[in-house]
Design a binder for these strands. Sequence first.
DNA 1: TATTGTTATACTCTATAACTATA
DNA 2: TATAGTTATAGAGTATAACAATA
Lengths: 150, 150
Amino acid sequence: MGTQQTPSFDPLTLEVVDLIGTVVARYHEEYEDAAAEHALTGAQARLLSLLSLEPLPMRRLAQRLKCEPSNVTGIVDRLEARGLAERRPDPSDRRVKLAAATEEGRRVARSLRLSLRFAREPLATLSREERMSLRELLLRMLDEPTGAGA
Amino acid sequence: MGTQQTPSFDPLTLEVVDLIGTVVARYHEEYEDAAAEHALTGAQARLLSLLSLEPLPMRRLAQRLKCEPSNVTGIVDRLEARGLAERRPDPSDRRVKLAAATEEGRRVARSLRLSLRFAREPLATLSREERMSLRELLLRMLDEPTGAGA
DNA sequence: TATTGTTATACTCTATAACTATA
DNA sequence: TATAGTTATAGAGTATAACAATA
């Protein structure tokens, strides 16, 4: 509306925001590449990575992936068709289906994790002390839940 | 190949990588939300943001967005249908079409940029000195082009 | 002959709404 | 009645291949 209130957009902040944007772009690129190397889409890779830790109800998967439950059906379908995931009944609630990674699925997930070069290369140039600094700064950044609004 | 070389996956590095993943997720979420508030998809928002700086050939847009040129056709089509972008001939090469943001498109792009809360809120908790430290660390991280490979 | 942009095609992801089977 | 998962549908992004216009 009309006059903007100039929200702390000083040059330094803008530069840092831009750098974060670059990190985000790089991260995504490498994640998609790593997924593609395993013939997985990004969504499939993310879902399989979740399942490699523990079986989860379809509903929970949707929450984790921040998408509608109907989408999870299709993604799990495709992983299941390739033998990377399976559906199991939940003994305590017969409405629930637990999605779980197969042994092959866990193997692929581990391979995917290891192929994420982002983990070693960019951070490899940082010393242990610098990594600790970075950890602190990122923690501070992510601290407030969603911002106190106005 | 074969035996993995255990790429410096110490606890600290893993934690930092995880934090970066969280930042990436948060950034994307907020970007998508900001785009949706303007009735734009993420891809449309990214393309429009590029055009708000300068007109670009379709081919260049594809390179910037890291996608195939055929996809750009559709995205620009949708922006054009809403009066946010337009195609112009390139005087120097009649094969080329320059995509450009309309005045309305630039207005939306600016509004989008301002609504990216990620710029102020997470960084607002950091002092100027801390922001400078963060900038240095991020620059160091992004320094090496793509990793020296093997 | 090579390049630019487009079209046609197919697949995946996405949200919405309606459906089923449980609870 | 409420919830979990699915299906059906439609829109958008994506890559591939083939095409017209231009270089």
